[in-house]
């Protein structure tokens, strides 16, 4: 049987197959059970340990459209958990492209929770948007060393004075931040928070959401206990959704689970294509060997 065609499949056919494999679960709205993830479990437990209505959590959403696919579901599930537990949080970003997401994401999640529970979540009371802050590591260090964060931050993203926001009344130094949730696709940005968001006396607990590309690097920080929880790409967010659904049974199914199912279909296709390519390669090798005298 001639198998040489396996080595000459048009790349456009492969693209089409990948799109079909990814699209099927989305079209038929099918979700597989996500794989349990130890790192996401730790993330969940770390947020469960924070006292409601106490210190704030700082959510650094350092991502834009380029890594939205993975970082948006991660940020959304973290925000959802914080809102459900009534843990006040402030959103901030080092990336200018994050600006629209900082505004929309908490509102979208809060609206969904209000429809589900009938409770209410308000801007200024339950969360604040500190917006895009330029300056990278210098800005992070400035916040960490500040004797009064109100002086450093001055206003929120809409220009309202920080002192006028009820959530920020008692937030004066880094010691009033219980946890840093850092979500990004860039290792350099994450490093800056690890390196500079601390002072001589206090280091807040840190959790991280990374893209699949940076998992091998981010895992080092988890193993060395520099972070207490980790979202490993969209798979981490999918498992976190499962944890939230277990603990809040009325919760609607989220997008990360469906994304992960589509990815699993595509991974199966890629494995099949790798096997086929190797069969073609082996066939070509055997054919050449037979030809040799």
């Amino acid at each position: 049987m001639k198998l040489s065609w396996l080595l000459n499949i048009d790349r456009r056919i492969i693209y089409l197959l990948v799109i079909v494999a990814l699209g099927i679960p989305l079209f038929i709205d099918y979700s597989l059970a996500p794989a349990p993830m130890k790192t996401a479990n730790s993330f969940y437990k770390a947020i469960e340990k924070i006292a409601p209505r106490g210190k704030i959590v700082l959510v650094a959403a350092d991502w834009g459209p380029g890594t939205q696919a993975e970082n948006e579901p991660q940020t959304a599930v973290a925000i959802e958990h914080l809102l459900r537990r009534r843990i006040p949080f402030a959103l901030i970003s080092n990336i200018p492209f994050a600006k629209p997401y900082l505004e929309q994401l908490p509102e979208t999640v809060a609206d969904r929770l209000e429809a589900e529970t009938g409770e209410q979540w308000d801007y200024g009371q339950d969360w604040v948007n500190l917006g895009y802050r330029p300056g990278g590591s210098i800005m992070i260090q400035g916040m960490a060393k500040a004797k009064d964060l109100h002086e450093v931050l001055k206003t929120d993203a809409e220009g309202t004075a920080i002192s006028e926001l009820p959530l920020m009344h008692n937030v004066r130094t880094i010691e009033d931040v219980a946890m840093l949730v850092e979500v990004t696709g860039s290792v350099g940005v994450f490093n800056s928070w690890i390196q500079f968001f601390r002072n001589d006396k206090y280091v807040p607990a840190m959790v991280h959401g990374c893209t699949a590309i940076t998992i091998p690097e981010a895992y080092i920080y988890y193993v060395s206990k520099q972070i207490v929880g980790l979202f490993e790409g969209v798979a981490g967010a999918a498992w976190y959704e499962e944890l939230l659904s277990e603990n809040y049974p009325k919760r609607e199914k989220g997008s990360a689970l469906q994304m992960m199912t589509a990815l699993s279909f595509a991974h199966l296709l890629i494995i099949a294509l790798i096997v086929l390519g190797n069969i073609g390669n082996l066939a070509a090798f055997m054919k050449n060997r037979r030809k040799q005298p």
Partner: peptide
């Protein structure tokens, strides 16, 4: 990660 970008757009 690249597949995730595609699936989000889909």
């Amino acid at each position: 990660a690249r597949m995730a970008l595609l699936v989000e757009r889909l």
